[in-house]
Computed example of a mutant assay.
Amino acid sequence: MHRTILAAAALLWAAPVPCPAQAQIALSANDNKQVWENGVVRTLPNPPADTVNILDLGATPPRIVATVQAPHSIVGPPSSVALTPDGGLGLVASSNRVDPANPTRVVPDNRVSVIDLRASPPAVVQTVEAGLGPSGVSVNRAGNLALVANRNAGTVSVFRIANGRLEPVSTLTVGPPASGVSHVQFTPDGRFALVTRDADFMVSVLKVEGEQVTAAGRDITVGIRPYSFGITPDGRWAVVGNVGRLSGDSDTASLISLTSEPFRAVDTITVGATPEGVQVSPDNRHVAVTLINGSTRPEGHPLRGRGQVVMLRIEDGRLQRVAQADIGTWAQGVAFSSDGSRVFVQNMVEREIQVLSFDGQRLATIDRLRVDGGPTAIRTP
Rank of each mutant, 00 (worst) to 15 (best):
L356Q: 05
R97W: 03
S250T: 10
D116F: 13
S281W: 07
G175Y: 07
Q346K: 06
H301F: 05
N163K: 13
S79D: 14
S337Q: 08
I220C: 01
A130T: 07
A8S: 13
Y227A: 06
I327Y: 03
P233Y: 12
G133A: 09
L117C: 07
R63L: 13
R3D: 12
W36S: 07
A199P: 02
D86P: 10
D359Q: 12
V222T: 14
F344A: 03
V280P: 02
V98W: 03
L6Q: 13
T259L: 14
Q34G: 06
Q332W: 12
A288E: 04
V68I: 14
L246N: 10
Q332D: 12
D50V: 03
S250Q: 15
V92T: 04
Q22T: 14
R118Q: 15
G87H: 11
S228M: 01
D86T: 09
S157E: 02
V343R: 08
S79F: 09
L12S: 01
V106D: 04
D219V: 03
P282K: 13
T4D: 11
T365N: 09
V158Y: 02
A162G: 06
I25L: 15
D50F: 07
S257V: 06
D109S: 15
L83H: 06
L363G: 02
I220M: 04
F358Q: 08
V158H: 04
V98T: 12
P100W: 14
